[in-house]
Amino acid sequence: MTRAALHARLEHGLAALGLALPGQAVERLLDYQALLERWNGTYNLTAVRDPEGMVTRHLLDSLAILPYVRGATLADLGTGPGLPGIPLAIAAPGREVVLVDSNGKKVRFLREAIRALQLEGVRAVQSRVEEVEGRFDCITARAFASLGDMLGWGGHLLAPEGIWLAMKGKPADEELPGIPPGFELRARHALEVPGLDAERHLLVLGHVPASGAVTAA
C-alpha cells in the first residue's frame, strides 16, 4: 500500500473517530509507522506486519482513547514499541510522556523513534514497572496485564487525582474483583476503532476518594 493510500486510510479513520489533529500530525504518525515497519523486520517488535494493519491496529487503536487522556504528565506502561504513548504524544504534543518497557530492544527502538520524530517531552525508560519513580496525571496501559497486576505493580505512579486508562479487548468483568484496595473503576467505554472488527474497551480507574472528599463529576 502506498504512502498516499495509508494517508487516506488514516485520515478517514480520524474523521470517523471525530479527531482533528494538529498540523503535520498525520505525516508524523505515518513516519512512526514506517519506522516501526522498518525496525520490525529485524527486531520483531510487533506481530502486525502489514502497513495497513499498523494504521488500524496501532495508530487508530491508540488514538481512540485520545478524548479521555488528560493532565500534563503521562506514563505509558508496558509500551512495547510505543503504543499508545507515541501516537498520543504526536496527536497531542506538549505533555510530558514517559514510555516504560523492560525489553531492551523495544526501548532501543523507542529512543530512536523519539530522536527521529523529534518528540519533545517524550522519554523512554527501560525498567520493570514496579521500579519506576514519579507521579503521573494519566497512566495508559494497552493489553499489558490484568487490572489487579497493573495497579499492584504501577499504582504508586498514579497522582492522587490522576486517572488510569486500561485498554482491553473484552469488557474485563472477571478482572474487577482483583482491583486492589484504594482503587476503583470510574467508567467503562466501548470503543469503535475504524476498520477493526474486534471488541475494544477502555476502563477508567482512579484512587478511591478520601473519606469526605467530593469526586468531580
Rank of each mutant, 00 (worst) to 15 (best):
Gly148Val: 01
Arg200Thr: 12
His58Ile: 12
Gly162Asp: 06
Pro93Asp: 10
Asp173Glu: 14
Val55Ala: 12
Leu147His: 00
Pro181Cys: 10
Glu37Leu: 15
Pro209Met: 04
Leu30Met: 07
Glu174Gln: 08
Ala15Met: 10
Lys168Phe: 03
Ala113Cys: 09
His58Trp: 03
Ile114Ala: 11
Leu77Ile: 04
Gly94Leu: 09
Leu74Asn: 10
Asn103Ile: 14
Gly148Phe: 02
Leu10Arg: 02
Leu21Val: 13
Ser127Trp: 07
Arg3Glu: 12
Gly82Asn: 10
Ala172Gln: 04
Lys105Pro: 02
Pro84Cys: 05
Pro93Val: 06
His156Asp: 02
Ile114Asp: 09
Asn103Leu: 14
Gly85Met: 02
Leu6Glu: 12
Gly121Thr: 02
Ala64Leu: 05
Leu147Lys: 01
Thr79Val: 06
Pro194Val: 09
Gly195Tyr: 00
Glu120Ala: 13
Arg128Tyr: 06
Glu161Asp: 14
Leu14Met: 02
Glu112His: 13
Arg95Asn: 08
Thr140Trp: 10
Val55Ile: 04
Glu27Asn: 09
Gly82Arg: 11
Pro22Asn: 08
Gly182Gln: 02
Glu11Lys: 12
Ala166Cys: 06
Pro51Trp: 02
Met54Cys: 14
Cys138Ala: 00
Ala75His: 03
Val208Pro: 00
Met167Leu: 04
Gly152Tyr: 00
Arg49Asp: 13
Arg70Glu: 14
Gly85Pro: 09
Val55Thr: 09
Cys138Ile: 12
Ile179Leu: 11
Arg123Thr: 11
Leu60Arg: 04
Thr56Lys: 04
Ile114Cys: 11
His58Ser: 13
Asn103Lys: 14
Arg123Cys: 08
Ala210Pro: 13
Leu10Asn: 08
Gly18Met: 11
Leu88Ile: 10
Leu147Ile: 00
Ala198Cys: 10
Trp39Ser: 08
Asp76Trp: 07
Ala8Gln: 11
Ala143Ile: 03
Thr215Val: 15
Gly178Ala: 14
Gly182Trp: 06
Ile86Tyr: 10
Met167Pro: 08
Gln118Met: 14
Lys170Asn: 15
Leu21Arg: 05
Phe136Met: 05
Val69Lys: 03
His156Cys: 00
Gly155Leu: 01
Leu151Thr: 00
Ser102Met: 06
Glu192Tyr: 15
Arg128Ala: 03
Ala113Asn: 07
Ala92Lys: 09
